[in-house]
Design a protein around this nucleic acid. Sequence first.
DNA 1: GCTAGATATGTCAATAGTAACATAGTCTAC
DNA 2: GTAGACTATGTTACTATTGACATATCTAGC
Lengths: 184, 184
Amino acid sequence: MTTLGYALLGLLAREPASGYDLKRQLQAPIGFFWRARHSQIYPELARLEAIGLVTYQVVAQHDLPDKKVYTITAEGRGALRDWVATPAEAPVVRDEVLLKTFSLWLVEPAAAVALVRDQERRHVEQLQVYEGLHQQLVQRAGAALTHWDSPYFASYITLQKGIGAERQYLEWCRWVVLLLEQPA
Amino acid sequence: MTTLGYALLGLLAREPASGYDLKRQLQAPIGFFWRARHSQIYPELARLEAIGLVTYQVVAQHDLPDKKVYTITAEGRGALRDWVATPAEAPVVRDEVLLKTFSLWLVEPAAAVALVRDQERRHVEQLQVYEGLHQQLVQRAGAALTHWDSPYFASYITLQKGIGAERQYLEWCRWVVLLLEQPA
DNA sequence: GCTAGATATGTCAATAGTAACATAGTCTAC
DNA sequence: GTAGACTATGTTACTATTGACATATCTAGC
């Protein structure tokens, strides 16, 4: 089993979804800690189906193309639970901006500021997306938000991590710009 | 050119180093935003040498095996500078712990706490490493620490990002444990 | 009628990255 | 002496991931 497989099971454990749905979820709500393109998702779903962790039904839509709606099986849920209880690997980050920051002393402050401001803009947007998701979550979840065995609770705590990370990134961007624009 | 190539140039722009040195630096000081194994580093160095961005000399050591010490060329420095001034890709994170957290509602609180505590331990260690590097940096850099055209400045601001990220991760771990251990 | 864009699902070639294999010199502690 | 650990450099087979290609349906606006 690949990690992406567990990511998909984690989403399907909440509700059935098509490959296309999963693709979108791997961009927005969980995209800040795991990403995948559709060219990786479709074959992975086929593999999960082949080993019996998910099943699917073709659903015809009146106004849109047909879709395959995948559902997690009891075995899939079991496999996911076992995996969660197992120690995790250390996070891996590949941040091109920080890599460029590391060599920032080679370029003029103006170019440096442009780089960091660009990143700042990106994180402002991301923060807004996550805060929107947080609002939705609080409304939908109600009391379940703080129950450890509710998927809302799990969504809530992961989302809080994302919001915290975005805020920290923003603070850093602003601090760097301040340093760079400081009169010499 | 690959991103790893620029990572290596970024390190070599500060001082000449062997593949083994670079391997170590891709673990500790810049490992939190870019990682690579030696099996990726050695071929990449050969490629950089082939296109004239670095050169090397074999250095015999009295007490240790010979090593190849790589030095960045003027072309290498130019290529690095051009790359830094170019807009960067969004950061990519692959965090297995957060992926497991997303499915944390499937396991007992005890198993959940174990997962998060394990991660907490890891980040406590990392934070200590980075804070140690910070101390070293401040001592070595002196006034250069705040000069935009000094490599110390670039190291300083990237390291601050790492320290901030570790602190944020730790805070989150402790907050989650608090929630999970809260009487129901 | 046509075009652009979203929905929807796939394949395939190429690249990036990992894990394992391979070798060899030196140091320290037993 | 020797076993284990660290320095040092490489290759190779495999896996993961990306980017491009490929196709089809439906809606909305021109």
